[in-house]
Simulated scan of single mutants.
Amino acid sequence: MTPADIRLDGLCALVTGGANGIGKGIALGMAGFGADIVIVDIDAEAGARLAGDIAAAGGRSLFVHADVMDRGALRAAIDSAAGQFGRLDVLVNNAGGGRPVKFMTQSERSRDRHVEFNLGSLMTATHHAAQHMIAFGNGGAIINVSSIEGLRAAPGYAVYAACKAGMLNFTRTAAVELAEFGIRVNAIAPDIIVTEGFVNQAPGAMEPRQVAARGRYIPMQRDGVPDDCAGPAIFLASGMATYVTGTTISIDGGTWASSGWVRTPENDWRLFPDFPSSCLDPKEPQP
């Protein structure tokens, strides 16, 4: 093994939802490590701008304007990638998202759209991209961008979280079924990653008081940024991970590990810190 094994030179990577946020970070990161990048996104302006930025930096990139919920358009985008670069090595299923709504007030149409956006499009892209990978005969890597909400309860995001949990099980099963073709399937599960979408959906989230409050719950004491997702994705796509498949990497600064433990002002850790310690700490047995 050498440092060259982390490089992605000569590989073609397609990123759905790649024009902004986490997808943009992954696309830029993979381009920096030598991959040819195909960006599939509904945001035409941002997608074209990103493709131009990659080209200006000396990389090769293609932007395909498509809505991932349009299955025909999604398949056509994957065909364009394979046709443009003569191969398809990496698929990053990043497109997805949701807005907070209580399950009992969520409409059937909203539920269906959540499922199609977050899970249906992933299955369509995986199936069609894997067909190309099998035909090219070079193996491949599929990376699913799930969420910590696929691992824990998520009040207000019931359908979204169910899709993300389903994505993780699909990752494991697809890894087993596609292993015979040399195709590896893995997932990353981010928690808070500061993107334009995060800031727009949570006004005031970047105020110092809010940032400091989140730092109490995040063991690494900071929010994540898109590059925090790009690094593990590059690893999973590279020759450094040729024996890694069916796994999920949490990208959360330790929040899944801490699972409710909160840092106190004294820099200690306590579960349910607003409760009196006498309610939580077991007493020493009396002699």
Score class of each variant (00 low, 15 high):
residue 12 C to N: 15
residue 12 C to P: 08
residue 13 A to L: 12
residue 14 L to Y: 10
residue 15 V to A: 09
residue 15 V to Q: 06
residue 15 V to P: 07
residue 15 V to H: 06
residue 15 V to S: 07
residue 15 V to M: 11
residue 15 V to T: 11
residue 16 T to C: 09
residue 17 G to D: 09
residue 19 A to H: 10
residue 19 A to K: 10
residue 19 A to M: 10
residue 19 A to T: 06
residue 20 N to E: 15
residue 20 N to P: 05
residue 20 N to W: 07
residue 20 N to T: 14
residue 20 N to Y: 04
residue 20 N to R: 15
residue 21 G to P: 05
residue 21 G to D: 06
residue 22 I to K: 09
residue 22 I to F: 07
residue 22 I to Y: 08
residue 23 G to Q: 00
residue 23 G to N: 00
residue 23 G to W: 00
residue 26 I to R: 11
residue 26 I to H: 09
residue 27 A to Y: 03
residue 28 L to Q: 14
residue 30 M to Q: 15
residue 30 M to V: 12
residue 30 M to G: 08
residue 30 M to N: 09
residue 31 A to W: 11
residue 31 A to N: 12
residue 31 A to Q: 10
residue 32 G to V: 08
residue 32 G to E: 13
residue 32 G to S: 11
residue 33 F to D: 13
residue 33 F to V: 11
residue 33 F to Y: 15
residue 34 G to C: 11
residue 34 G to P: 07
residue 34 G to N: 09
residue 34 G to V: 06
residue 35 A to P: 06
residue 37 I to N: 05
residue 37 I to S: 06
residue 38 V to H: 02
residue 38 V to F: 02
residue 39 I to T: 03
residue 39 I to W: 01
residue 39 I to Y: 06
residue 40 V to F: 04
residue 40 V to C: 02
residue 40 V to Y: 02
residue 41 D to E: 10
residue 41 D to W: 03
residue 43 D to C: 02
residue 43 D to Q: 05
residue 43 D to F: 02
residue 43 D to I: 01
residue 44 A to G: 13
residue 44 A to M: 04
residue 44 A to Y: 03
residue 45 E to T: 10
residue 45 E to Y: 03
